[in-house]
Design a protein around this nucleic acid. Structure first.
Length: 426
RNA sequence: GGGCAGUUACCAGAGUGGCCAAAUGGGGCGGACUGUAAAUCCGCUGUCUUUCGACUUCGGUGGUUCGAAUCCACCACUGCCCA
């Protein structure tokens, strides 16, 4: 059993830790859990850190429990939210629970022959039989409102103009009860999560202590931020999801590849399992020659493999090379195969005869759905953001030309540096 | 139930009869510089359109007016305080 806490510390994955946690982990195989809220039908990369905590835990010989919040999801966690959230419909919630469950199941080892096999639980299972009256008698009685109001997540909302509903106020009790229940039924002594969960987690340990004098431990990991202060995990296209149908493996790979130098250095420690010496050496090399972006490449590689598998990683690298490494090479050198098999490209079709006769470029771009309208296409061309076959279009009034056609039928349109469209003409 | 404040574009937030498609900031998108970075600078950001112009927007409905985001009436919703 290696020292989990020391390992996580050098990776920068520990924010707060309860006294005695390290001793507990060193003493015996410990069961620990992380909760995941089913706010969407897929997890996004923000949930990756808590997932990794569970994986590290299991690697260190302890028993991980991944908890899907079927019950807590019905209440809504106020932590870090400046206003009351909309409630999800039960249908949506059910769909989300299934989606999240399936994803979590991929990252942990559930083989029953392991003594520390992972478990996947849904807190709805133990909450549904509890009546409201039972709950406020058995749980509510142990925690004072004064205690609950002192929590940061609550205090902030009480001070804001928006207020807070009783539902969200109760959230910490609901989550606290999870910990208590797991402590009773699974001998779960530890909870982990993002640092925004600290308040909720502490309510849980408090409940365990007050209800039956039990001992419980916890630590949290820092919330990931970008060095420029932007939100982590968001891009122009929105969230980076783990579900390949929402964020393609290529886009996923690209996200990590585009990390800034400072971010990449801390992220590679957090998001990969590479060991300390390897990472230190890599960072040193990277600083010698930052333009090679060794850290970003390794980070993108490790993570894409972890989430999507080797095969998808290979495809993503291949597409990346075709789209970016050869960007100085003219488009005519791309083979039919290259064009057709590149991932992360939007494809559409167009009537070849109209193109050959010479059609104005605005009509072409709007009808192929590269742009919503001629006006939008015009603006972007005037801004210098459109290329055809890697040649910048300068005049919005120009006409199409026969020699646009690659291999007699393809046109490669580029908006900005990173958005590619392949128009097949026949 | 009573009193007060409010509802403006993706978000925050100005505007309180015409100069308003609506300040400013953030975000987003594009460009330059670079390394598919960061920082910086520049452009775009209601819709459609050959920059003319047309059309639709300021919680909803109706009204006053030559003219309404702005004034009036009613309705809806939100927050705060009191009961």
């Amino acid at each position: 059993m290696n020292n989990l806490i020391r390992e996580l510390k050098w990776r920068g994955m520990i924010q707060d830790i309860m006294p005695g946690t390290e001793e507990q982990l060193n003493k015996e195989m410990t069961t620990a859990y992380v909760g995941f809220d089913p706010t969407a039908d897929s997890l996004h990369i923000g949930s990756l850190v808590p997932i990794l905590l569970l994986v590290h835990l299991q690697k260190a010989g302890h028993k991980p429990i991944a908890l899907v919040g079927g019950a807590t999801g019905m209440v809504g966690d106020p932590s870090g939210k400046s206003e009351e959230r909309n409630m999800l419909s039960l249908d949506e919630l059910q769909k989300n629970i299934t989606g999240v469950r399936n994803q979590l199941a991929r990252f942990l080892d559930f083989s029953p022959e392991r003594t520390n096999a992972a478990e996947l639980l849904n807190n709805y299972d133990w909450f549904s039989p509890i009546s409201f009256l039972d709950f406020i008698r058995d749980v509510g009685k142990h925690i004072t409102v004064n205690y609950m109001m002192a929590k940061d997540s609550v205090k902030k909302r009480l001070e804001s103009e928006n207020g807070m509903s009783f539902t969200e106020f109760s959230y910490q009790l609901v989550q606290g009860y999870d910990f208590y229940w797991l402590h009773q039924n699974w001998n779960c002594k530890m909870q982990m999560g993002g640092s925004d969960q600290w308040g909720n987690i502490v309510t849980g340990t408090e409940l365990i202590r007050r209800k039956n004098g039990g001992e419980a431990f916890a630590f949290t990991c820092p919330l990931i931020k970008k060095s420029d202060g932007g939100k982590f995990g968001k891009t122009e296209k929105g969230n980076i999801w783990l579900d390949p149908s929402k964020t393609s493996p290529f886009q996923f790979y690209q996200f990590w590849l585009n990390a800034s130098d400072t971010d990449a250095e801390s992220w590679i420690k957090i998001f990969t399992f590479l060991d300390e010496t390897f990472i230190e050496t890599l960072i040193a090399e990277h600083r010698q020659n930052p333009s090679a972006r060794l850290v970003q490449k390794k980070l993108a590689e490790e993570l894409t493999r972890f989430v999507h598998g080797q095969e998808e990683l290979d495809k993503s690298i291949e597409t990346t090379q075709k789209l970016f490494s050869t960007s100085t090479v003219s488009a005519t050198e791309l083979s039919v195969d290259d064009l057709q098999n590149m991932e992360g490209i939007v494809k559409s079709s167009f009537d070849i005869s109209r193109l050959e006769t010479g059609i104005d470029i605005l009509t072409f771009l709007s009808e192929t759905k590269v742009f919503e309208s001629k006006g939008a296409a015009r603006k972007m061309i005037q801004n210098g953001g459109v290329s055809i076959n890697r040649n910048k279009v300068t005049d919005p009034n120009s006409l199409s030309e026969k020699n646009w056609l690659l291999h007699g039928r393809f046109v490669l349109v580029q908006v900005g540096k990173k958005n590619y469209f392949l128009i097949e003409c026949d």
